[in-house]
Amino acid sequence: MKTITKMFTALGLAVALFAAPAHASGGGQKNAEDYDFSFEGPFGKFDRAQLQRGWQVFKEVCSNCHSLKYIRFRNLTEPGGPELPVEAVKKIAAEYEISGEVNDEGEPITRPGRLSDAIPAPYPNEQAAKAANNNALPPDLSLIVKAREGWYYPWYISPFIKLFKGNGGAEYVRSLIAGYEDPPHGEEKEGLNYNPYFPGHWIAMPPPLAGEDVEYADGTKPTLIQEATDVAAFLAWASMPKMEERKRVGLMTLLYLGVFALLMLMVKKSLWSRVEH
């Protein structure tokens, strides 16, 4: 048993050491501000009200430039997400015009959105999106929280931070949105904005939120940081809509494996106690 404890300590250490550099990265960015989202940790869940507020911010502000192509309207009603009522989402969907279909005469038509439709993109294609945004493509946000990292610690700390705090994608989004600053030394760059959290500091997106951009139905005060936090949580859900199910099944699996392993250990001991080894 001692050997095995030693073995797995070594194993864990080796994994951590190896994973370390894989995450390390340079560039002089500022670490995202740490924030304890409700969905962090092995038992963390999304805060429904927060996801609903975040969806409102996305819908009313972000979606003017950004698509969210892997989210379908029905996802907004599914368990583990914002869990909006089906009828309400049907109405929201119907407000959108879905194009891309043709009628019997072969002419392109539009129709009101349905639950099964993906949330329509603001621009018909990449070129149009670039042309409308100073030649910078607003990225799709469906996976943005998983695709971005928030921490820039040295390689020998980073793996441990990431093991406990994750990649910091949601924190990055939150800090970025609320973190625009005046550039140091009054420097200016054509069509770019200064943001210490952005890799390279100069970002094409102008500050998307200023506070009071939306009116929350639940009475939460829409300050800049509140909106940024809510939309970061919403986008975290959009990146990992199955997170709650994953953690739930994970807990059952680990408990099961633990019990089974313990029984196997007893079986093994009872067998080996009879022989010299």
Binding site: I4, F8, L11, G12, P42, R246, K247, V249, G250, L251, T253, L254, L257, G258, F260, A261, M264, L265, V267, K268
Partner: peptide, 16 residues
């Protein structure tokens, strides 16, 4: 027994 212990570490990563 060893496989189960290994699978526990594996599952911890898969799920968390």
């Amino acid at each position: 027994f060893a496989i189960l212990v290994f699978l526990m570490v594996y599952a911890a990563f898969v799920f968390y």
